[in-house]
Amino acid sequence: MSVVLEIEDLRTYFDTEGGLVKAVDGVSYTVEEGETLGLVGESGGGKSVTALSGIRLIPTPPGRIVSGRVLYKGQDLLELSLDGMRHIRGRAIGMIFQEPMTSLNPVLSIGRQLTEPLITELGLSKYDANARAHELLASVEISDPERRLAQFPHHFSGGMRQRVMIAMALSCNPAVLIADEPTTALDVTVQAQILELMQRLTEERGGALVIITHNLGVVARYADRVNVMYAGKIVERSSATAVYGDPRHPYTLGLMSSVPRLDLPVTERLVQVDGQPPNLVDLPPGCAFQPRCPYAQEQCLEAVPELMQTVDNHYAACFIADQLGAGAKAGQA
């Protein structure tokens, strides 16, 4: 499989009143053709900023990309002119956002929003663009496209709007689709439908899908590979099965045991990751997770652990990753 998107040592900082926030601090990962990649972590861990930096939609100021490279098929997107970047957005990399309620323009009809880049960017005629819009709506399983295209976002429910967002993101056939918390704002019943739909469509088109989420269940079910992020860094990376079956970072371990389980008695208290997510302005010394880590040792205070391979293609940024085998996990639960 060839790599479509490669993020290399990306650093995106925000200048805030409280000080410098290193929202993304040296993140590297690759997206391979046809795969579904999961990006997991708590809110404020830098998942969305990583994705938005990739297509350079970070609000500047206060945000700025300090260093790194974003290679799309070998081309560094951070070096492109604004106009060059425009051609990447939508056509090479498509995005779906978290908030379907506010991500569609309230004063333009669905048809108008769907066909706009087809006409202005791809140069389709109005007639062809309309036909394509019909197809797109049908592909995201919205019935009666004729009537739906003339309607406005306020006529649609949240799930329907997210379907429209998917249709819009796919309209120019991007090679990579980045979905930033695509189901967080939706009803649980609709979440699965939307995810299935996204995966089916990316599979059909042979593109790659990046799902950004804090929901481990979503990742377990849909992702091929997983990157776990904490405080602007990737702390664990492997295939979804390996991360689930054999987590090698205490943070991942904590996340897993905090998922409510139906097979355990209700009286059992939910295990939580103790402490607060770190203050990004004032990170603790050494490993950022160290104050909340049950396994913290002296060396964790002194140095920042690098992302290193523990077993085959399983990387973790923890000094004791090798010891965190099945035995340690049992002790935790």
């Binding site: 939609l57 425009r86 995005m95 956002f97 506010t102 991500s103 880049p117 819009m168 309209s171």
Partner: peptide, 11 residues
């Protein structure tokens, strides 16, 4: 958000 959406589509 919808302005960001418009930008993300390469307009």
């Amino acid at each position: 958000d919808y302005v960001r959406t418009a930008r993300s589509r390469g307009l």
